[in-house]
Design a protein around this nucleic acid. Structure first.
Lengths: 256, 256
DNA sequence: CCGACTTTGTGCATGCGTTCACAAGCGGTA
DNA sequence: TACCGCTTGTGAACGCATGCACAAAGTCGG
C-alpha cells in the first residue's frame, strides 16, 4: 500500500506542488543520509565553501558518490552539470524537505542522568528543535530548572504538551515507565517519539517512533569483536578487510 | 572479498565448529534484532516464563513472526516444532553468538553531560560491558571519580586503554575533538567505536564504528512530521496509515 | 500405537535499496 | 558559434532483506 502516486492535483498548493509526491517516495535510509549531507554542507558553508561536487560531498559524508546523487535526486534536480552543487541552494532544499523550516518543540520525559544531558544540549544540535518542556515523576525535581527550563510533574504532561505544542517527545525514563509515558504522550497528541529506554514501545499507526538503544549498539559491536576474534583464530593469514556496509547511516572512508 | 566459505577445518576448535560460518552469514539487520530478542527473552526469564512461541516472541519484539524465525535460524535450530522455544536455551545461544560470554571493557571519552550520563549507567545496560576508563582534556576533571571510575587525562589514552584491555571506545566529545580522539583510540588498539559526536569519522577498515546521532534522529522525525502535515492538508480523507518499515530496529505493533 | 494438531524451519517470490554505467546538459574556449 | 571536457541525473541490473506458504517434525489425546 501507499505506493500509488496521486496525480491530477491542479489546485494551488500552499507547499510546493510536486515536492509532496517526492517526499513520500524518499526511502527512509535516504532521509537519514540527507540529514548527514545537511550537516556536512552546513559545515562547508561556515567555512566559506560555495560550491561542491558530488564526489567531494560524498567523501565528506562517507558514502558512495552515486548513492549521494541518487539521494539528492529524490528531492529534485538542483545541481549544475559540469559544475556541481551550490552549497546554499542544497542546504535550503534539504532543510525544506526535512521540514526544518518550522520549529519543532521538544519535550523530554525523565530527568535522570540522560535527561539532564539532553536538556542541557541547549537548543539541541542542529537548531530548530527547542526543548520547551521537561517532565519527571519525582516531586523533588518539579520546579527546578534544568538547562533553563523548569521541570513539570509528569501528570501535567497532557496539558503542558498541548499548550506548548510539543511535536516531539523524548523518553529518557527507566524501562518500566517508558510504555506508560509513551501512552501519555500519544494521548497528548504527540506524534513523534524518540525513545532512549530499552523497551519496545507499542503505539498506534499514526505515531512515529525512533529508537536509540545503547545496549543494542554495544551488543552489535560485541558481535563484531567476537566474529573478528574467531576469524583471527581460524585464519592463519592476518588480512583484515571488513567493510561496514549494510544498514545504518555510518560512514567509513579512508581519509585522503 | 570475504564471501568465500572456508571449509575443510577438522581441528578441534575452541569455539563451536559450524557457528563461525553461520556468524559471518548473519545479516547486520538481523544482528540488531537478535539483541532485541535477547532483551525480551531476558525479561521473560525474569518473570518465570520458560517457553515461548515465535508468535509470542515476535509480538513482544515488535516484528513479523516469520522474520523472527528466520533470524533465529541464522544461529541454528534450537526450537521444538509444535511447541516453541525454551527461553533459557535461546538466551544462552543468542548471548554466545553476540559474543556476550566474555566481558567487553568500555572506555568513555569526553566527560561532559553525556559522558557523565554514560559513566553513571553503571555497568551499562545489559551487563557485560563494564566501563573501566574515562578520559577528558579538562585537567580539572582528572582524578575525580565519575560513577566510581576516576577520570584520566586524554593524553594517557593509549597507555590506559592497552593496560585495561579496552575493546570498545565511546566518543562523547564535542564535534571538533571527535576525529582526533578516534585516531587516538584506534592507535591504542581499540577496534570498536560508538560515536555520539555529530561527525562522520574516518577510520581504517579494520575498525567498526556505530553512530548515535541525535540531530539525525530528530531530523528524521521532523521529516515525518512535515510529510504528515502536508498529507493532512492535501488529503481530505483523514485515513492515517504509516507503517514504520524500512531501516532500523524499531518495532511498532498494535498491542493485543 | 496412531492420528490430528501445532509450530518450527526454510525454499521461493516479491520488493526495496544500492551500484553501475552512460546519456544529457552545461560552462569554458577557440 | 561550435567543440570539448566535466559532472549531473537516471535507467537498469544486481543483491539483499522481507514476507509468504508449506513441508517437516514433534506433541498430545485417544
Amino acid at each position: 500500500m501507499a505506493s500509488q502516486r496521486g496525480e491530477g492535483e491542479t489546485t494551488t498548493t500552499p507547499l510546493e506542488p510536486a515536492d509532496r509526491e517526492r517526499a513520500r517516495a524518499i526511502p527512509e535510509a535516504a532521509v537519514a543520509r540527507l540529514a548527514v549531507y545537511l550537516r556536512v554542507l552546513s559545515g562547508m558553508a561556515d567555512q566559506g565553501v560555495t560550491a561542491v561536487s558530488s564526489e567531494e560531498l560524498s567523501q565528506a559524508a562517507g558514502v558512495n558518490a552515486a548513492k549521494l546523487r541518487k539521494d539528492l535526486s529524490y528531492i529534485g534536480s538542483y545541481g549544475t552539470r559540469g559544475v556541481g552543487y551550490d552549497v546554499e541552494v542544497l542546504v535550503s532544499h534539504i532543510e525544506r524537505i526535512l521540514g526544518l523550516t518550522r520549529n519543532h518543540s521538544v519535550a523530554v520525559v525523565g530527568i535522570g542522568n540522560l535527561g539532564h544531558a539532553l536538556a542541557n544540549y541547549g537548543g539541541f544540535p542542529g537548531r530548530g528543535f527547542p526543548v520547551t518542556a521537561l517532565f519527571d515523576v519525582d516531586a523533588d525535581l518539579v520546579g527546578i530548572p534544568v538547562g533553563g527550563i523548569p521541570v513539570n510533574h509528569i501528570d501535567e504532561i497532557t496539558a503542558v504538551c498541548r499548550e506548548r505544542e510539543v511535536s516531539i517527545g523524548v523518553i529518557a525514563t527507566p524501562p518500566p515507565a517508558a510504555q506508560s509515558v509513551c501512552d501519555r504522550l500519544v494521548s497528548a497528541g504527540v506524534q513523534c517519539i524518540l525513545n532512549f529506554a530499552p523497551v519496545v514501545l507499542q503505539v498506534p499507526d499514526n505515531v512515529e517512533v525512533r529508537k536509540v538503544d545503547l545496549a543494542v549498539e554495544m551488543q552489535i559491536l560485541s558481535f563484531h569483536v567476537a566474529r573478528r576474534a574467531d576469524e583471527a583464530v581460524h585464519n592463519s593469514s592476518g588480512g583484515v578487510s571488513v567493510g561496514n556496509n549494510g544498514l545504518g547511516v555510518d560512514g567509513m572512508v579512508i581519509r585522503p
